[in-house]
């Protein structure tokens, strides 16, 4: 089975939010909540000023804290490493929302918890996630982490620097950030799943 992962090259992201719009449309995400958002950070004082766009979403952790807390098994990890919610068995208790360190889950008004699925419905048809396909700067790569020739594996190998969000949480995210500017250093390397 593949082990799906995504990499986002922060040196190439221009914060256009095309990925966020594509996600919203593709997945019919309700108003008021987001599966994907762009964080814009500005640091420093003129003339020593830096700025960074960072798209954020569910990281499909290898050790997801949101899964074991689910009382019905609706939150689960698929054989190919996707962290998903089965809407049919979700009771919308919010335990997974509380457990997620990345604020990536939300209550869908239709009565279950929603989150990024890496567009599983597209993956099974051999397509890329909507955010990856839409990105005009090609800063997003997606694929099988166990395949050394996949786009994501090659992008990670070629990167000057690889970071994950909140490595101290021990979640081993499968969404990684490449080439983070030094002053926005997220974390030490070596936290890859």
């Amino acid at each position: 089975m593949p082990r799906y992962a995504m990499a986002i090259d922060l040196a190439a992201c221009v914060g256009c939010a095309a990925c966020a719009v594509a996600c919203k449309l593709e997945n019919e995400v309700p108003a008021g909540v987001d599966r994907l958002w762009i964080r814009l950070e500005e640091r420093g004082t003129f003339p020593d000023l830096a700025m960074q766009y960072r798209p954020e979403q569910c990281l499909h952790c290898a050790e997801p804290p949101c899964v074991p807390v689910c009382p019905t098994g609706a939150s689960h990890v698929t054989a190919d490493g996707l962290v998903l919610v089965d809407a049919e068995t979700c009771i919308a208790c919010g335990a997974c929302i509380a457990a997620c360190p990345y604020d990536a889950r939300y209550f869908d008004p239709r009565g279950f918890v929603g989150k990024c699925t890496f567009c599983e419905h597209r993956i099974v048809q051999g397509q890329l996630p909507a955010c990856v396909e839409t990105c005009p700067t090609l800063c997003r790569t997606f694929g099988d982490l166990d395949d050394p020739e996949s786009d994501v594996s090659r992008a990670i190998r070629a990167a000057r620097r690889v970071d994950v969000l909140k490595p101290e949480q021990g979640t081993r995210p499968k969404l990684v950030y490449l080439n983070t500017p030094a002053r926005f250093g997220l974390a030490a390397e070596g936290a890859l799943p």
Binding site: G15, A17, A20, V33, D34, L36, W37, I38, R39, L40, E41, E42, R43, E56, I97, Y102, D103, A104, R105, Y106
Partner: peptide, 9 residues
């Protein structure tokens, strides 16, 4: 300064 397009939940 941190701002967002969209928002974390």
């Amino acid at each position: 300064i941190t701002t967002f397009y969209g928002a974390p939940n």
